[in-house]
Design a protein around this nucleic acid. Structure first.
Lengths: 182, 182
DNA sequence: GTCTATAATTGGATAGAC
DNA sequence: GTCTATCCAATTATAGAC
């Protein structure tokens, strides 16, 4: 998640309000008026500074988990570590992920989600892998990781949400590990 | 996917038009006017017969894959068979799944997606499993299956889409199998 | 840079004649 | 059951004064 490229206080306020409202309520349920009100700013300034609602959405909803300490963890425990890291991400990342997912009907937003998936899931996994089919294994591994977020956050599997954290890390991490070091 | 409970030809036409437009363009991008026009019917009848736009959406977007022949396949090859079955589902199921997913910000739609996940993924897998932790393994397996659909359809992993079908079935099915018969 | 006012469109839903 | 006409609310985006 990149920081606000705050030029003026007004732009910074709009940026912060949009980040919060979009991640809490999603794209459709957040109006330009709402953002202006939350920022204590006239709604017209929202468009004036960021061009359009979708442009502001794309500017704020940037999912970047590549700052993970995954590059320094031993390869043999990377599976469990990675699962643990995605399960302990703050509430904020969850909101951005869901907002992107649910607004992915639009072309621009869809491609941003694609990039986020590639940079946050596929790339960090593939970077640690070796072998001729490393790319394929990394993509299946990314699907596996994304599937956990889907089950917990989108499908809302409450039984899985209530399951002991370490148990999920152990079992699901083992599956991920078998793709990393087959 | 349940059939149209067609009473009158008008209701049937509305039902068919809504099913097509919602699954092609999603909830937000489909207006009641669009549905009426596609059905060759006055837009007001859409509301009159189905109560509201969301009620019509919930009535038509019913994902039901429980009719799979998975109950008859041998347990040892269930993993690959299940992965193969979700990869070969018709375009129609994909549209309904994505429409539900992207509209899952609403409470009613979210719970319908939860039910679909439970009945189409969790239940058929758990029904074939044994052991004290069968429920947890089934939920992790459902996450794994959903993750593949997420990667292909939501994140749009083109490299994975271009990968040989049998190769994905073999590798990813093997992971699923290790949850079914550990 | 900021605000007032409003354009221009679109949406869901309703009333009442036929 | 169906259609005409419309209400009412909400949206994004813009024009122009200050």
């Amino acid at each position: 998640m990149s920081d606000s490229p705050a030029r003026t206080p007004t732009q910074s306020a709009i940026w912060a309000a949009a980040l919060r409202l979009f991640s809490e309520n999603g794209y459709a349920a957040t109006s330009v008026r709402d953002i202006g009100a939350a920022a204590g700013v006239d709604p017209s300034l929202v468009i004036r500074h960021f061009g359009s609602k979708e442009a502001l959405f794309l500017a704020t909803m940037q999912l970047d988990l590549s700052a993970n300490p995954l590059t320094s963890t031993p390869l043999e425990t990377l599976g469990a570590t990675f699962i643990d890291s995605v399960l302990t991400t703050d509430e904020h990342v969850r909101g951005v992920f869901l907002a992107l997912l649910r607004a992915s009907g639009s072309d621009g937003i869809s491609s941003q989600l694609r990039e986020a998936h590639e940079q946050s899931f596929v790339a960090p996994l593939r970077d640690r892998m070796t072998g001729p089919d490393a790319d394929l294994r990394a993509r299946l591994a990314a699907a596996l990781v994304g599937g956990l977020l889907y089950a917990l956050w989108v499908a809302g599997d409450e039984a899985l949400l209530a399951t002991d954290h370490d148990e999920v890390v152990r079992r699901y991490g083992e599956l991920l590990q078998s793709l990393i070091t087959p």
